[in-house]
Amino acid sequence: MLSKIYLLVRTQRFFTFLTWPTRILLTLAFLPSGLKKVIGARFTLMPVDTNVGFFFEALYRTGFYWNFLGLMQLTAAALLLVPRTAYFGALLYLPIVANICVIVTAMQFEGTPVVAALMLLANIYLLVWDYPKTRRLVAVIFQKT
């Protein structure tokens, strides 16, 4: 059933057209924050007496972990732009954007949960776009031993 839906969707020009802009927009979403983290700059200048400011300051003070987060964001973004690695980029993007969704919702960021949720949905779209690969990966993960 899902395979038939997948084949129907893959033949629609609209979805073919939608895939590249989705990859590009997701890449652009990670570039500024990823670059700031890689170079060791603060992401926000909010005061630490706010929940959001305190959270980002704590992350910033972790040092290497802050840089690592940025490196992973930039890696996922770059992989999305190369057709051969786009699926791996979407896989790498998934836990990062899911984590962002949880954080911005838990920290009660204003407006940001909506943006993060849309990014998560766009990322899931890319994973579904490569449904055969995703199906094989899920089968391997849940394979009974």
Score class of each variant (00 low, 15 high):
53 G>M: 07
119 M>K: 03
43 F>Y: 15
126 L>R: 11
8 L>E: 05
50 T>Q: 09
2 L>S: 02
125 Y>I: 11
40 G>E: 08
90 A>S: 01
18 L>D: 14
120 L>S: 11
85 T>W: 03
55 F>Y: 14
118 L>S: 12
41 A>E: 15
8 L>N: 12
60 Y>S: 00
127 L>N: 06
100 I>M: 10
112 T>K: 06
63 G>L: 12
16 T>A: 11
24 I>C: 06
114 V>R: 11
17 F>A: 11
88 F>G: 02
53 G>K: 08
33 S>E: 00
49 D>G: 04
18 L>N: 04
19 T>G: 02
27 T>R: 06
20 W>T: 01
62 T>Q: 11
88 F>H: 10
40 G>Y: 12
93 Y>S: 00
45 L>P: 01
111 G>M: 07
66 W>M: 03
131 Y>P: 01
50 T>P: 00
6 Y>L: 00
80 L>Q: 04
130 D>T: 06
114 V>I: 13
46 M>T: 04
16 T>S: 11
62 T>E: 10
102 V>Y: 12
109 F>P: 00
68 F>T: 13
40 G>F: 12
114 V>D: 12
7 L>S: 03
71 L>M: 15
128 V>G: 13
3 S>K: 09
67 N>D: 09
23 R>K: 15
18 L>I: 03
33 S>D: 03
24 I>T: 07
33 S>Q: 00
77 A>H: 06
16 T>H: 11
41 A>R: 01
103 I>V: 14
80 L>R: 08
56 F>A: 04
47 P>R: 08
102 V>M: 10
79 L>T: 02
79 L>Y: 03
137 L>E: 01
85 T>S: 09
15 F>K: 10
10 R>C: 02
39 I>L: 13
97 V>Y: 01
104 V>E: 01
11 T>S: 10
83 P>L: 02
30 F>A: 12
109 F>N: 07
37 K>L: 10
59 L>V: 05
80 L>Y: 04
142 F>Y: 15
15 F>R: 14
143 Q>S: 14
39 I>F: 15
4 K>Y: 13
29 A>L: 02
59 L>D: 09
108 Q>Y: 14
104 V>A: 06
85 T>N: 13
137 L>Q: 06
59 L>Q: 15
12 Q>V: 04
45 L>S: 11
145 T>V: 06
13 R>N: 07
59 L>R: 10
66 W>V: 04
14 F>H: 05
58 A>W: 08
83 P>Q: 02
24 I>D: 02
5 I>Q: 04
50 T>E: 14
122 A>C: 08
11 T>G: 15
89 G>I: 09
27 T>L: 06
77 A>V: 05
29 A>Y: 03
117 A>P: 12
126 L>K: 11
44 T>Y: 09
4 K>I: 15
49 D>I: 05
21 P>N: 12
46 M>F: 13
29 A>S: 14
